Simulated scan of single mutants.
Amino acid sequence: MFQSALRLIYPPRCVSCGDMVDRDFALCASCWGQMDFIAGLVCDCCGTPLPGEDAGEPEYCDDCLARPRPWARGRAAMLYREKARSMVLAFKHGDRTELARPAADWMLRAGRPILSPGMVVAPIPLHRWRLVSRRFNQSALLSQGVAERAGFAHWPDLLVRIRKTKVQDGMGPEERFANLAGAIAVQARYRERLRGRTVLLIDDVMTSGATLSTAAEACLAAGAEEVRVLVLARVAKAS
C-alpha cells in the first residue's frame, strides 16, 4: 500500500529526460531510441561496432590491429556520442550517481560474451586529489554494479594511481599513452591474491585505450593470468 501511494506521488521518471516510465531507473522509449547501444558484429578486443555479420569468429577493428592491446577481450555498451555522451557527462561531472544503476545493467548485457567463472572485477582508479575534487570514482560505481549483478568478486582498490597525470581531453593517442605510462600499479596487498586470476577492468569511456592499457599491464606484471575490459561507452564511429 505504502509503495503504491509513493509511486502515485513520485512516479518513475526517465533517467535521461524525466518523462514518466513504467519502472525506476529506466529510459523512456524516445530516449532509448536515441541511445547508440552497440549490437551485432563488434571488435572482440574493444567492442567497437564493425560492418558485416557475426560469423562466430573474433574480428578486430583497425585501431586494435594497429596497436595490439595488453588485454585479451573487451566490450562496450554504447557509442560515446549525442544522447549517450550527455548521459555519461551528467554521471561523471554532474553528480548523477544514480545513473550507475542502469549503466551497470547495460554494461553487463554487452559484456556477457567475455565473462568467465571466477573473474575479479576492478575499476580504473582516480588519483587521490582528483577523487577529493570529484567526491566519487564513477568507474568504481560501475564496477560495483557489474560485479554484484554477475556474482563476481569486486576489488575496488586493486589498482592505484601512483602519480598524477594531465587531463587527457584534446590529446592525441600518442600523447595519451605517454601521459599514462607507468601511472597505475597494483596495490601490494593484492599481489599474491591476483596471481593466476582473470581480471575484468571497468571504465566509463574508452578513447585511445591508453588508460586501460596501463592498468592491464600493471595487472599482468603483478601476476594476473589474463585481463579483459568492459566500458560504458566507446569513442568510435558507427559502422
Score class of each variant (00 low, 15 high):
residue 118 G to A: 05
residue 229 V to T: 09
residue 82 E to D: 15
residue 29 A to W: 08
residue 37 F to L: 13
residue 227 V to P: 01
residue 94 G to Y: 07
residue 123 P to E: 13
residue 238 A to P: 06
residue 176 R to P: 08
residue 223 G to V: 03
residue 21 V to G: 02
residue 80 Y to R: 00
residue 125 P to E: 15
residue 132 V to A: 14
residue 188 A to S: 15
residue 195 R to S: 13
residue 147 A to P: 03
residue 75 R to D: 09
residue 133 S to W: 12
residue 52 G to S: 12
residue 5 A to H: 09
residue 80 Y to L: 07
residue 98 E to M: 10
residue 143 S to V: 09
residue 135 R to I: 12
residue 165 T to N: 07
residue 44 D to R: 13
residue 153 A to E: 13
residue 41 L to C: 13
residue 60 Y to S: 03
residue 199 V to K: 04
residue 88 V to C: 10
residue 51 P to F: 09
residue 56 G to W: 08
residue 200 L to H: 06
residue 98 E to F: 08
residue 223 G to A: 08
residue 165 T to E: 03
residue 75 R to S: 08
residue 100 A to F: 00
residue 228 R to S: 02
residue 119 M to S: 05
residue 161 R to L: 08
residue 15 V to C: 13
residue 216 A to M: 01
residue 88 V to P: 03
residue 125 P to W: 09
residue 49 P to R: 04
residue 194 L to E: 12
residue 114 I to H: 01
residue 21 V to A: 02
residue 107 M to K: 04
residue 71 W to V: 11
residue 184 I to L: 11
residue 231 V to M: 06
residue 20 M to P: 01
residue 223 G to K: 02
residue 105 D to R: 09
residue 132 V to P: 01
residue 11 P to N: 02
residue 163 R to Y: 08
residue 88 V to D: 02
residue 76 A to S: 15
residue 89 L to M: 09
residue 171 M to S: 03
residue 198 T to V: 14
residue 129 W to G: 01
residue 18 G to H: 11
residue 57 E to C: 01
residue 184 I to E: 05
residue 182 G to M: 03
residue 53 E to S: 02
residue 187 Q to N: 12
residue 115 L to S: 03
residue 40 G to M: 12
residue 79 L to P: 03
residue 204 D to E: 14
residue 148 E to Y: 01
residue 116 S to C: 12
residue 181 A to K: 13
residue 5 A to P: 00
residue 7 R to V: 10
residue 67 R to W: 14
residue 182 G to T: 02
residue 34 Q to D: 13
residue 195 R to I: 04
residue 70 P to T: 13
residue 157 D to I: 02
residue 28 C to D: 07
residue 87 M to K: 00
residue 193 R to L: 14
residue 198 T to P: 01
residue 85 R to P: 02
residue 178 A to D: 15
residue 195 R to V: 03
residue 216 A to S: 13
residue 124 I to A: 12
residue 56 G to N: 09
residue 185 A to L: 05
residue 224 A to M: 10
residue 100 A to E: 01
residue 220 L to Y: 05
residue 16 S to V: 04
residue 196 G to C: 05
residue 30 S to D: 10
residue 32 W to N: 03
residue 161 R to E: 04
residue 239 S to E: 11
residue 18 G to E: 13
residue 138 Q to H: 14
residue 106 W to S: 01
residue 106 W to A: 05
residue 19 D to L: 11
residue 102 P to H: 02
residue 146 V to G: 00
residue 189 R to C: 05
residue 197 R to D: 00
residue 50 L to K: 08
residue 208 S to R: 07
residue 134 R to L: 05
residue 227 V to W: 00
residue 140 A to P: 07
residue 195 R to C: 07
residue 65 L to C: 15
residue 211 T to R: 02
residue 168 Q to F: 10
residue 72 A to P: 13
residue 223 G to Q: 05
residue 70 P to M: 14
residue 98 E to L: 11
residue 106 W to Y: 11
residue 233 A to W: 08
